[in-house]
Amino acid sequence: MKIALLSVTKSGLKISKQLKMKLSQDPRIFQVDIFHKNVKETLRRIFDDYDAIIGIMAMGIMVRSICGLLSDKRRDPAIIVMDDAGKHVISLISGHLGGANDLTLEIANLTSARPVITTSTDVHGCMGIDALAKKYYWKIKNTDKIVKFNRALLDGAKIIIESPENLEYLFNDQLFRKSYMIKKGEDKIIKAILDKDEIKIKPCRLVAGVGTKKGINEEKIIEGLKKALSFLDLPLERLDIIATGEMKKGEKGIINASRILKKPLKFVDLNDLRLEDTHSKSSFVEDKFGVGSVCEAAALHVAGRGSRLILRKTSYDGIAIAVAVSREKVF
């Protein structure tokens, strides 16, 4: 995730600097940039380049500055506003699909500000269909039906999730259990069904790239995968593929972990690893293999063309793990 922090006052700039330090510790966040003053001009220039934009300013300034830039809830960045005393942090735009609500809660936790969430499903303790898709990295085809389905949830309806895949891990999600039921389906795609209407859903490919020191056993690797996915608030069952470099073909720990978890294991050719632009850089790995990070490169390659990292390299006792998600067109 790339985040832009905008401020207009000295106190706002101070908060931006403090927030940058704290957000940069999150392995889901890859870049945090600070911009000061010239709000309208800056927003026009950066609006499409960041996943989230946080304005440390009066909400009116942000609203007036972004109104001509918004285009589509599927593509607009998360927009968050925080007052320059750091007392309140408000999710303004793209609360669900853009992740503004979750980021607002994280900022509140980091700064002790009071979070302000106004999306109806959230304030009534429901998980909207768009929030469900965002959390589990699903793509929704007919987004025009989101409002109808979410309104039904607020009226007490239960939505059926019909799937050919095993989605039992969803039952561990308390908010999911409150509003949804699972039914075995025959079609190749997932469907959310409300009466005679339906929303078509397809999961994005989720790949964990793994690099290890020699001789690491499968128990440690599985525990490392669980810890990595916990940063994303995802169960291990949501993972689709495990990937690593071809130099790890003899590592029984990785092979056995794949077998135990019943997840496909892909070995990536060294030349293909070198083609990937990784976020993390290890001089040792680069000198030895010519790639900045084996786990990041393997995850990106197997996730497919245009894929993106959603968890940068994280290390656990001799194990390095990164997670990438596909960006291929699914509908």
Rank of each mutant, 00 (worst) to 15 (best):
D173P: 02
F35H: 10
T118Q: 05
A131E: 08
Y316K: 01
I93N: 01
K196R: 12
T212Q: 08
A133Y: 10
L43A: 06
T244N: 02
K87S: 08
E251R: 05
I159W: 08
L234D: 03
S163N: 13
I242F: 02
A297I: 08
T111A: 10
S65F: 03
N217W: 04
N256P: 03
I54A: 01
S16P: 02
I241T: 15
T118F: 02
A52N: 05
S326K: 06
V89C: 13
E41M: 02
H88E: 13
I129C: 11
E162Q: 08
T9M: 09
L239T: 10
E106P: 02
K2N: 14
K262L: 10
I29S: 10
V268I: 13
A208E: 08
I310P: 02
R64Y: 00
L194V: 03
D155Y: 13
K178S: 04
I160K: 04
R44E: 12
R327W: 04
A299V: 13
D130C: 08
A257F: 12
E276K: 07
V210D: 02
G99Q: 03
A157S: 14
I146N: 02
K139V: 15
R274N: 05
N101R: 08
D122I: 11
E296Y: 04
L229Y: 07
R308E: 13
K135L: 13
I66G: 00
G125W: 04
L19E: 02
K37T: 11
S24T: 10
G128I: 06
I117T: 00
C295R: 03
